[in-house]
């Protein structure tokens, strides 16, 4: 295959991921967020638009498109417009390295279910790209020329920097066990139900909490604490620019479960040992195998997404000092302890 062909396939995959994973994912996230919230509050939730209210997200978007796009007089127009674009781009870019399934062989051609297969520093890529997202919020807050967005964005910057450390160091245990930063290798190492959650329970817990903070979800949604900050960093946004921030927020509860599922829940590995699959004639690289892998990955992601929503509607918001205490005095030491425990156990088992 020449380089042009590779480029074309990559572009096609990117388009498929954006239009068949990210946007429908956001739609599912919007719907399930609103419905689950309603159920927890003993309400019915949106059930008007389409069957069971399934078209609610499309109605929301249609409304936002027809809204006037207002840039406040005090705002810096360039950065005000740039911020939602950065937010969307960085979030969409995270999907590039997520392995949705292994691969299929069509004839002699091997097609990987990853936009960028075998990136050997995929974990670092995820951490790096997700930390760029803080610029979106900082720009949005600063360029709005209003005090509430400013406060929200300052909080977000502090919060993301504090939790990024923990996020990274909680993964070192996995990287030590697998010996690779490559997400495909990490998923392959979790075959036969050897999921990392069983080997790294502390690491999983820390990563889970840190990813709540990183995605600015409750109980760490200080960035947009409605009672204190009106709407946080997107207070001064209207129309589709606001819609983009909302899209990002809902894509976050798709992408964070994707990363958690890949790293800790066995990624696309079906919860059936490989020898059973081989015994019933499902071979690696076949289309049935790929569908099975896609299905189990989707199931894991949807389960984690429901968990994210469930947590949001259960726990009250942290206070800012509690957030910082938890991040620096509890989570970071715990993640370091996790590294030491992993190292000691690995040394003893060698």
């Amino acid at each position: 295959m020449d380089i042009l062909m590779l480029f074309a396939i990559g572009l096609l995959k990117a388009a498929i991921v954006v239009f068949l994973v990210m946007l429908p994912g956001a739609v599912i996230a919007v719907y399930s967020e609103r419905r689950l919230a309603a159920f927890i509050q003993m309400r019915l939730g949106p059930n008007r638009v389409g069957p069971f209210g399934l078209m609610q997200a499309f109605a929301d978007v249609a409304k936002l498109i027809f809204k006037e796009d207002i840039v406040p007089a005090q705002a810096n127009r360039f950065f005000h417009t740039l911020a939602p674009l950065i937010a969307v781009t960085t979030t969409a870019a995270l999907f590039a390295v997520i392995p949705f399934a292994d691969y299929v062989m069509i004839g002699d051609t091997r097609i990987d279910f990853t936009v960028a297969p075998n990136v050997n520093l995929a974990i670092l890529y995820i951490l790096a790209v997700s930390s760029v997202a803080v610029y979106a919020m900082t720009f949005a807050g600063w360029s709005s020329g209003s005090k509430y967005p400013m406060l929200g964005s300052l909080r977000s910057a502090a919060q993301m920097i504090s939790y990024e450390l923990t996020l990274g160091s909680s993964l070192i245990g996995i990287i030590m066990m697998t010996g690779s930063f490559n997400l495909n290798d990490i998923v392959h190492a979790q075959a036969n139900l050897k999921w990392n959650i069983f080997y790294q329970p502390l690491g999983f817990l820390i990563f889970l909490v840190a990813s709540f903070a990183e995605t600015n979800r409750a109980p760490f949604d200080l960035v947009e604490a409605e009672p204190e900050l009106v709407g946080g960093y997107h207070t001064e946004y209207t129309g589709m620019k606001f819609g983009l921030f909302m899209l990002v927020e809902f894509v976050h509860i798709i992408i964070a479960p994707c990363i958690i599922a890949t790293l800790f829940l066995g990624g696309w590995q079906p919860p059936i040992p490989t020898f059973i699959l081989n015994a019933i004639g499902i071979q690696e690289g076949s289309i049935i195998m790929a569908l099975l892998q896609l299905g189990s990955f989707a199931a894991k992601v949807l389960f984690m997404m429901a968990f994210f929503i469930w947590v949001r509607w259960s726990l009250p918001r942290f206070r800012y000092d509690q957030l910082m205490n938890l991040g620096w005095k509890v989570m970071l030491p715990l993640s370091l302890i996790n590294i030491i425990i992993t190292a000691v156990v690995m040394f003893l088992l060698k």
Partner: peptide, 23 residues
């Protein structure tokens, strides 16, 4: 963590209750 689990259990129970609103 145990308190968080308790809270989650409480909201889960709540979600299975009959709804207070109607269509």
């Amino acid at each position: 963590l145990p308190e968080i689990a308790k809270g989650l259990a409480a909201t889960f129970k709540q979600a299975l209750q009959p709804k207070m609103t109607r269509s």
